[in-house]
Design a protein around this nucleic acid. Structure first.
Lengths: 418, 418
DNA sequence: GGCAATAGTTCATCCGTACAACAAATGCGG
DNA sequence: CCGCATTTGTTGTACGGATGAACTATTGCC
């Protein structure tokens, strides 16, 4: 599925004689004997976790290309590490010794998702099967709040939840804290979160979660990862653009089931893409940004509602005014959003667009305009099927995405758990 | 240098019970004993090729973390494969046995770059040191040309060049054909190249190059890769946005020295990003695309020149009208380009912008406007240094980029050459 | 009940790296 | 000029991990 023509890494053909590139790129390091073990442990773990029907040891061997003997020892280690569980042998009607199905271990190793957003605090625990083990979501008005107080409160919630989880014998592998702002994953610092009124702070210590490994990330990025779980009726795409409409507009890019983050993870800022340079001035100082057309307040105003109305009011108004779901021009946001998304697709060539936040509910009134503008403006539209769909992950998707991200890291390096 | 928080691969945590993701992702395959050898061969090759000062075997061992004994055997294989050459031992004034410097082997394994563009055909051969071994560039007016004739002629040029190269004992590792249009790397087909008047064709067989491995790619993408060689005075950035202005406007994205290609490699189409929805109609059918402001014809018209004037005429006119280099508003294209680039940066978070094609020469008259609009419109501008620079690779950069790409692939899998 | 079929385990073998010892080639101090 | 420290490169042994074949375990079917 990787169509890049073998462009996996640094090029490094240097013209002889010119002194540059002085920093030695250490690279991923030397491959030793135990590297094989780590690599194949990961391979086996992926085989067990990515397949819809449980595999046996023999099935894993066939799927991975490893020898049955090798798979046996690796699976035994994963079982001992409580990452994989053996189900009772099932006699499937065929001849031969019955196979032992291998499944992700439930309620053993879990991931913790944390979130501070404008109107709530949340904690969610997921186990390796994807089940929600425990969660707490507390509403609150957190514009211009005190980070120490809010994060301390979130830390308390997290401790309550993790204490209960640990009492049941589960192990918390780590945590991800989702924040609605510019986050620097290198330093773990929050640069600025306009809607919270926070800036330039180190949030992790304020949680007071001791030695638990907590990493921070942008809320929309983690919400996008939650979409990789797919929905009850629809499969998850491997590559998509995720755009979430709320007070601000957040975006993320997923390619081959991994986030694309640019240089610092500050990508996907579709809210400030040019829609019309003659448009209204944006809070960012520029003119005609998408946010001025498709941000929550702009949509409310366009519908004749107070800017801070709840989303339900807008939905009710749309239904009341008889705007045909599926019809064009129900919301002025539709064409603006389509225009910005067309830029996004032209620049990235990712053909599936997942709309989250308020857009998920408003999609019936947005879709016609969005799709029409995409067809007009995307250069490759004649050669590509563009898909626009609503987000599948439920409310507080960033909590799910954060917890999933912790568990993904566990599966990427299962050797640390054996 | 990888700031993504461990998002290397497919996630795969699936909710138990829901049937989806049915395609078994085979993954990169099982790691066997010889995988170690391949991996470490690559590591050693990179160490030799990426360092400005030649390393000895002991130096490679220190740089890679491998044992000296291991490095010795690996280096011997690379030398036998003619990828690496030993220089005469140099007694560097220090005590101890003199070290044998290892360098990329000159004139041994070479890469072939091919290109069809609107006004020329070209062939260029690079060796592993980055030197141009041989090249042929033939001007021609190729709008609305016959693909069979043009590609046949290019194939003849390529054979002439490769015959000479082979007669000198060199081995051509492969070729890349650069085309100005939408290319599908999966199938090797050219979907459409508007300026050539070509569409829906399989160009490789028309070259008549027999069993030589030829792959096709977009011209701007390969030109961007040429920038990884750096310039005589300035180091190459590891991540950058490349935008090349000509009749059309081409773009590419390089992150960590590798092309980012989206799903099909049809990304970087900045020429059709919205600058002003009330603007002129574009050849693509939409309104107010960047190409209508910063395409070559638009720039000529804005300067009062015939649309098909040579670039030199525009430069002369700018000098003549006394438009201050470095001053604002010398060209209307400047602010339009800045607007589209700001969208690009907002969506991708890549902070270095390399301008090629006509923009490289026009940069003195564009820079002030571009940088001003970027500062206004890029959301992360207060936290990031944005760099705008002219392309360093000389004319016909796609030829260099294509040849480099072939050699990069050789270094990524040196085991095939031992 | 015997036989074929499939799952899982055990064991000798092979491959590649690591570590240590050794050989080679130099600078330096006496 | 000689001995010694120093660094490079090579040789030999040990070890870890994957393999494939042989073996055991458990079922369906005739």
């Amino acid at each position: 599925m990787n169509y890049c023509p073998g462009l996996g890494y640094s090029q490094g053909v240097t013209t002889a004689g010119t002194a540059r590139d002085t920093t030695t790129r250490t690279g991923p390091g030397a491959a030793r004997q135990h590297t094989l073990r780590e690599r194949n442990l990961e391979l086996v773990a992926r085989a067990v976790f990515e397949v819809p029907e449980p595999l046996s040891r023999a099935g894993v061997a066939a799927a991975t290309g490893l020898a049955r003997a090798t798979v046996s020892t690796l699976v035994d280690q994963l079982v001992a590490a409580r990452l994989v569980r053996e189900l009772p042998a099932v006699t499937g009607g065929r001849a031969g010794r019955p196979a032992v199905p291998l499944v992700p271990a439930p309620r053993s190793v879990v991931g913790l998702g944390l979130e501070v957003n404008v109107d709530y605090l949340g904690v969610r625990v997921l186990d390796l099967t994807g089940d929600v083990v425990s969660e707490r979501v507390v509403p609150g008005a957190l514009h211009d709040s005190d980070p120490a107080v809010v994060l301390g409160r979130l830390g308390e919630l997290a401790r309550e939840v993790t204490d209960g989880v640990a009492a049941s014998g589960m192990t918390v592998a780590g945590a991800r804290l989702a924040l609605p702002g510019l986050v620097d994953p290198r330093t773990g610092l929050l640069e600025v979160a306009p809607n919270l009124g926070w800036s330039s702070l180190d949030p992790v210590p304020l949680l007071g979660l001791g030695d638990l490994a907590v990493r921070i990330a942008n809320e929309a990025k983690l919400a996008a990862l939650a979409e990789l779980a797919g929905g009850s009726d629809v499969a998850a795409p491997d590559s998509f653009i995720f755009v979430s409409g709320d007070v601000g507009i957040g975006g993320a890019v997923v390619v081959d089931r991994a986030l694309f983050l640019g240089e610092r993870g500050w990508n996907g800022e579709i809210g400030h893409v040019v829609v019309d340079p003659a448009g209204p001035r944006c809070s960012c100082g520029a003119f005609g940004c998408l946010e001025q057309y498709a941000g929550k307040e702009a949509m409310m105003r366009a519908a004749g509602l107070p800017p801070d109305s709840p989303l339900a009011a807008l939905v009710a108004r749309l239904a009341q005014t008889g705007a045909a779901a599926g019809g064009a021009q129900a919301l002025p946001a539709g064409r603006a959003l389509g225009s910005a998304l067309a830029d996004f697709v032209n620049l990235l060539d990712v053909g599936t667009i997942v709309l989250g936040g308020a857009y998920a509910e408003l999609l019936p009134w947005l879709r016609a305009d969005v799709e029409a503008v995409l067809a007009d403006r995307v250069l490759a539209a004649p050669f590509v099927d563009l898909h626009v769909r609503a987000a599948q992950a439920g409310p507080h998707a960033a909590l799910t995405g954060g917890a999933r991200e912790v568990l993904r890291a566990v599966l990427a390096a299962p050797a640390a758990w054996v």
